[in-house]
């Protein structure tokens, strides 16, 4: 919903000077402050008993905050530069997800499938 209103904001001013939609920018600033404070509060207060749930929430909030920053601060939309910035961004996002997700996934399973070693050997290797 918030993303929708941010998208709508550049519209009226798009014909004036491209990169100055004040309303979208203010909404983005407020959202980014909230999306920064909440994960810090969750972790520092230990509000949720299960760390896995906390981790899932802060990862989800991080993704939302990245989208908010890209839309409201970097002014990514479907129109600018004939859509080429959006295309380049989506391509990059795919590569980033593949690089990070793929590396962590592959190496996690590699570690999980290694033969167990005595503690001393493990600690020197790791």
């Amino acid at each position: 919903m918030s993303t929708h209103s941010l998208h709508a904001a550049p519209g009226p001013q798009g014909s004036a000077r491209g990169h100055g939609s004040r309303r979208g920018y203010r909404i983005g600033a407020v959202l980014s402050i909230i999306l920064t404070v909440v994960p810090f509060w969750l972790v520092m207060s230990g509000a949720l008993p299960d760390p896995a749930v906390t981790a899932a929430i802060i990862f989800a909030l991080a993704l939302v905050q990245i989208v908010v920053h890209v839309v409201s601060f970097l002014h990514l939309d479907t129109q600018s530069e004939g859509g080429w910035t959006l295309l380049a961004f989506l391509f990059t996002a795919v590569i980033v997800v593949l690089t990070i997700g793929g590396s962590v996934w592959v190496m996690y399973h590699l570690n999980a499938n290694m033969m167990p070693m005595p503690d001393s050997a493990t600690s020197t290797m790791r």
Binding site: T36, V43, T54, A55, I58, A62, I66, V70
Partner: peptide, 16 residues
């Protein structure tokens, strides 16, 4: 934007 990744994935996730 890069720092969003750093504080969430490195610091906060590292601590919990």
């Amino acid at each position: 934007i890069i720092w969003i990744g750093v504080f969430n994935f490195v610091y906060l996730y590292g601590v919990i």
